[in-house]
């Protein structure tokens, strides 16, 4: 169970997160949508403390972090219970595909090399990259890189998987293969938090959609509720801009 309470974050004079309260239960797939600058990526990055909130509480199950007095050990624990898939992949450039997946297992989770390798090969096969395990990131296409990124995060078996606009940097023809994998993971019962612009996809996989604007959560609820019957004016305006115009056929 992930709990974010009264999260505030300022970048210099820019108040990016204005008191966010969010709860995510085990098995939830929560998608966060909103215009650029709304703070959704910043919020996501607070969950694994890549951004340090100025105020508030972050807790995952029994682990709580008071952001006014963060304890280093706790932050490390937090990061070991979460895993992130980055918009620009951020694969370890000096490691092979397999090594990228096993690094965290060996170093952070202290698994044996043999076991890490087994897990790694297994997951890489599941994402369809069994033949690339000894390749380096520079040799892969964007879609392949992101699949490695997903494999790397999955292998860690985290309490929650964080996706930061996973397909925004991909060429259109590769978006499908990555979404397919995310879809499969979602159906497997893993707790996920996704920031994305792919509204249709969000509808499909999530059991809750959160709409953020200007640093606040405007409304949240099941996909159908939010996307088809939005209650707030701002939500409606945003969706109108994003969604395709309906085709009128005669």
């Amino acid at each position: 169970m992930i709990l974010l309470k009264h999260i505030h974050k300022k970048f210099k004079n820019n108040h990016v997160l204005k008191g966010i309260d969010l709860e995510v239960s085990k098995g939830d797939v929560v998608t966060i949508i909103g215009p650029s600058g709304s703070g959704k990526t910043t919020l996501l990055r607070c969950v694994n403390y890549l951004e340090k909130p100025d105020e508030g509480i972050i807790s995952i199950n029994d682990l709580t972090i008071q952001t006014k007095k963060p304890v280093k050990k706790d932050i490390l624990q937090l990061r070991r219970r979460t895993a992130m898939v980055f918009q620009h992949y951020n694969l370890f450039e000096n490691k092979t595909v397999l090594e990228n997946v096993t690094e965290g297992l060996i170093i952070a989770q202290k698994k044996s090399k043999k076991m890490a390798r087994e897990i790694g090969v297994d997951i890489l096969t599941k994402v369809g990259l069994a033949d690339k395990i000894n390749a380096y990131p520079q040799q892969l296409s964007g879609g392949q890189k992101q699949r490695v990124g997903i494999a790397r995060a999955l292998a860690l078996n985290p309490d929650v998987l964080l996706f930061d606009e996973p397909t925004s940097a991909l060429d259109p023809e590769m978006v499908g293969e990555v979404l397919e994998i995310i879809r499969e993971i979602a159906s497997g019962g893993v707790t996920m938090m996704i920031v994305t612009h792919e509204i249709d996809f969000a509808c499909e996989v999530s059991n809750r959609v959160v709409f953020m604007d200007d640093g606040q959560i405007i409304e949240q609820g099941p996909p159908d509720d939010i996307l088809i019957h939005p209650k707030q004016e701002r939500t409606r305006k945003f969706l109108k801009r994003i969604m395709k115009e309906p085709d009128f056929t005669i």
Partner: peptide
Amino acid sequence: QIGQMEAAHSVGMTTFQALKRI
């Protein structure tokens, strides 16, 4: 790139481990 350090942190490495290995 800063992304390398962030990725290392996100898989649970300490800063020292991230520096040394990545």
